[in-house]
């Protein structure tokens, strides 16, 4: 079976869930080969997990320059692997970085790219949802090596043991790729909540919170959810931009999305419309968000959410 390169996202060797989803997608279309950028120690730590989810080989590139500069070195790495390994396709996560690495590598190898795929068939036909989720498109790369960026949470990761043999590869980015240097990094305090794009449940607040996210956060914590926000809430300075859901924020596709005090503007829908279940809490029974909702409560979020939080806690 032909090989599919999968670019792995990880934090010091702990593999992102989205990468396991990519391996599962790759397994259904060929032989997954993990491309791991990081130290040899991190790779050792990650390898068993990657193998468990189907990686036959784990190619490890550990030149520090790969992570000291934005995008371009990793794109060069992928382009060189496309050349040397001749894979049937390259899968990346449809994160901002994944898209850009793949976009650049596709330009280098004169290949087509499909972004935001929610599904990929064994013959590499990708399904995308476009125009704020209003249309579903299927498409295929017809030139070069297909680069496909797959949305986190669209495919469920299934274990399927692979050999997971670790191979160090010697790769050093060219000087031309070492131009956009990351000069410093400011860590943000951790929220302790799940990662927004990977969470199974997302609870979001909008202008209707009037700046008080406490009931949103309390309900989120009761159900183990990540917290999202509408742009109105972010622009007002009530919640960080990193938590914005929508066209100019994150796209989420959880099992359950709860929108509280959010009207459901098209740009917001663009980021949450593919959620499996949608729940809305809104004072206005004509709010467009109710058109999407599988379950809606017309009411004041300051009454509904605290009661719901108590009800969840009472179930334990």
């Amino acid at each position: 079976m032909s090989e599919i390169l999968v670019l792995i996202d990880h934090a010091d060797g702990s593999v992102d869930k989205s990468s396991l989803e990519l391996l599962t997608a790759a397994k259904s279309a060929g032989t997954p080969v993990a491309v791991f950028v990081g130290t040899a120690e991190a790779a050792q730590q990650a390898a068993p997990t990657l193998a468990e989810y189907g990686a036959e080989r784990v190619l490890v590139a550990s030149d520090p320059a790969l992570t000291e500069y934005l995008v371009a070195p990793k794109a060069e790495l992928l382009a060189s692997l496309v050349e040397s390994q001749q894979p049937a396709a390259v899968f990346v996560s449809a994160s901002p970085e994944g898209r850009e690495v793949a976009g650049r590598a596709a330009a280098k190898t004169d290949s087509g790219i499909i972004t935001d795929a929610v599904d990929v068939t064994p013959d590499l036909v990708a399904t995308q949802s476009v125009f704020a989720g209003g249309y579903t498109i299927t498409g295929k790369v017809v030139k070069g090596t297909p680069f496909i960026a797959i949305k986190p949470n669209s495919i469920s990761a299934e274990p399927s043991q692979g050999a997971g043999s670790v191979e160090e590869i010697s790769f050093s980015p060219s000087d031309a790729a070492k131009t956009a240097r990351i000069v410093s990094v400011e860590e943000k305090p951790a929220s302790g909540r799940p990662n927004l794009t990977e969470a199974a449940i997302v609870v979001s607040g909008g202008r209707g919170t009037n700046g008080d996210f406490a009931p949103v956060e309390a309900f989120a914590d009761a159900v183990g959810a990540a917290v999202g926000a509408s742009r109105a809430a972010v622009d007002a300075g009530w919640y960080p931009h990193a938590n914005q859901v929508g066209q100019t924020g994150k796209t989420v596709s959880p099992q359950l999305y709860v929108a509280a005090g959010i009207s459901g503007a098209i740009q917001h829908r663009a980021g949450m419309q593919t959620s499996k279940n949608i729940v809305a809490v809104n004072k206005d029974d004509e709010a467009p968000i109710f058109e999407l909702a599988d379950y809606g409560v017309v009411g004041d979020l300051f009454a509904v959410l605290p009661q719901a939080t108590d009800a969840v806690n009472a179930r334990r």
Binding site: D285, Y295, G296, V297, V298, V304, Q307, T309, A311, R315
Partner: peptide, 13 residues
């Protein structure tokens, strides 16, 4: 879609 008449949170859960 239900209107909250004091039980909305419970109904939701």
């Amino acid at each position: 879609i239900v209107a909250d008449e004091g039980e909305g949170g419970q109904q939701l859960v």
